[in-house]
């Protein structure tokens, strides 16, 4: 194993003219080093002007997502040795506006996420703090995989529909809506239907399936959207044919 590896890192300075460029840095290649460790080595030892986001280093905070050799990945869970002898291309997450170097603007996702009400909605007036809602393990299994989402937005970077149609609600927001729709304690499914069953919601998805491939937490947003299409289509049809029963 060579003892160094080259990182080709995107540099973008908003105050300077021109599009982003790639800058090469040689960093130590160590067995236990992830791409994020390489970036931190650059920041600490080689070039303090490099900007990138990171926090937990253990795949939970969801802030270090970048494009590594063309694939969206959490840089804390992507190891340099897997790319030896290199070089490794590190670019900002695709489909998002770039603020500086590897930092992207996530406002669009932050605006869309609360629209699907990703929390327990109760309509019977019971305050969540006062009552204990019991749930069987089977009921929890219905939504558990979707609750693993860490909002890292890799699925948005992988989704060509989002790239082409920035109004698309997107994989994570829809998967998180399903996480609550499928929760036996939740009563907000029909409120979310109005947000999800729209041209910018599930009907924009053409099932490329890359969101599921990209997800570092094993969530299946593509499956969630596909399943919800059937739910929404049958519900919409029912309220269409039997308006008196629609809520």
């Amino acid at each position: 194993m060579p003892d160094t590896i080259t990182l080709q890192v995107t540099r973008y300075r908003p105050d300077a003219d021109g599009p982003p460029t790639l800058q090469e840095y040689v960093v130590p290649l160590r067995e236990e080093w992830a791409v994020l460790d390489g970036l931190n080595y650059i920041k600490d030892q080689l070039d303090g002007t490099l900007s990138f986001r990171w926090s937990c280093r253990m795949g939970i905070c969801g802030s270090c997502g970048m494009t590594v050799n063309g694939d969206p990945a959490l840089t804390c869970g992507t190891f340099l040795t897997d790319y030896a002898p290199g070089p490794v291309r590190v670019e900002p997450l695709a489909n998002f506006p770039v603020i500086r170097d590897l930092v992207v603007e996530i406002d669009d996702f932050m605006r869309k996420l609360p629209e699907v009400k990703p929390w327990l909605v109760r309509e019977d007036g019971e305050a969540l703090d006062d009552v204990e809602f019991l749930q069987t393990p089977a009921e929890m299994d219905e939504y558990k995989q979707y609750s693993m989402c860490i909002n890292c937005m890799l699925c948005y970077a992988a989704c060509p529909v989002y790239g082409l149609e920035p109004d698309f609600l997107g994989p994570a927001a829809i998967a998180l809506a399903q996480r609550y729709n499928l929760d036996s304690r939740d009563q907000g499914a029909h409120q979310r239907l109005d947000v999800l069953a729209t041209a910018e919601g599930i009907w924009a998805c053409t099932y490329v399936g890359e969101c599921t491939t990209a997800c570092p937490k094993g969530v299946d947003p593509a499956g969630a959207i596909q399943r919800y299409k059937l739910t929404a289509a049958t519900r919409t049809l029912r309220s269409f044919l039997m308006p008196w029963r629609a809520r």
Binding site: V195, T198, W203, A233, T236, L237, S239
Partner: peptide, 17 residues
């Protein structure tokens, strides 16, 4: 926010069939 689209729902059901 866009409105719920029943035409898309019908189009998708026919597409699936």
């Amino acid at each position: 926010m866009a409105k719920r689209s029943s035409s898309e729902a019908v189009a998708w059901l026919l597409f699936s069939a």
